[in-house]
Amino acid sequence: MTSDIHVALSGVTRVYPAHSGHGEMHALGPIDLSLRRGEFVGIVGPSGCGKSTLLEIIAGLAKPTKGTVMFEGAAVGNRVPDGVGVVFQEDASFPWLTVRDNVAFGLRSAGVDEAEINKRVDHAISFMGLSAFRKAYPSQLSGGMRQRVCIARTLVTRPRLILLDEPFGALDQQTRLLMGEELLRLWRETGATVVLITHALDEAAMLSDRVAVMSSRPGRFINILDTDWPHDRDSRIVADPRFGQFTSKLWEMIRDESKKAMGIQ
């Protein structure tokens, strides 16, 4: 892994202006963070702390009120830069397209030639274990498989930065663990920088090189911890005693903030 800075956030702040009788709301920041190329960073925090807003700002889907985001040395403006892929928590597969057409969607929009589309789509479909379902519609798939379609759709665009907004939030625990393994495999194969937003501490602990812990609103980083896991880790890391210690440490940090977010003293 090289140590050059791939993504840099400085002073990123989001304040929602007052409207319809509600006062101004300071949702996020200031946040400073530097991501090394090829790094896997998890971001955890209590509900409503602005995790998803932060991800949208990094992606160029939302604008910060103050501060800047730099991706590969260029400022991220009001559009998603080339080389950035985003996977959302909600089911974003299109029900009117087959699995294959869903996966090819981004490439067709970008005007990539058909032979190249076929090559990349076939690879992504087989990588995500969807070969038997290429002609199926999303309504014929389980929630986990639909999310795999969305990941494959991101994968074909060959992103250098992959942003994931609670991608496994709607899945059961076993599926989450297995999807986590697939994500690690994808990360290793692409060499992309990955930012994972999640509310699941164990998921962040298992997948990440570093885990950033956010405070309750306005969301700021309380701490950023290195996991020190090997690069070729998989879900079996959960059996390692250090995994339990790490997750407990995360929970200790986040517990008071979660109570604050829930209004419990």
Partner: peptide, 14 residues
Amino acid sequence: IPRVYGKVARVAGM
């Protein structure tokens, strides 16, 4: 229409 579709469109640069 689910709002996430709009985000997918923006990510795809449409």
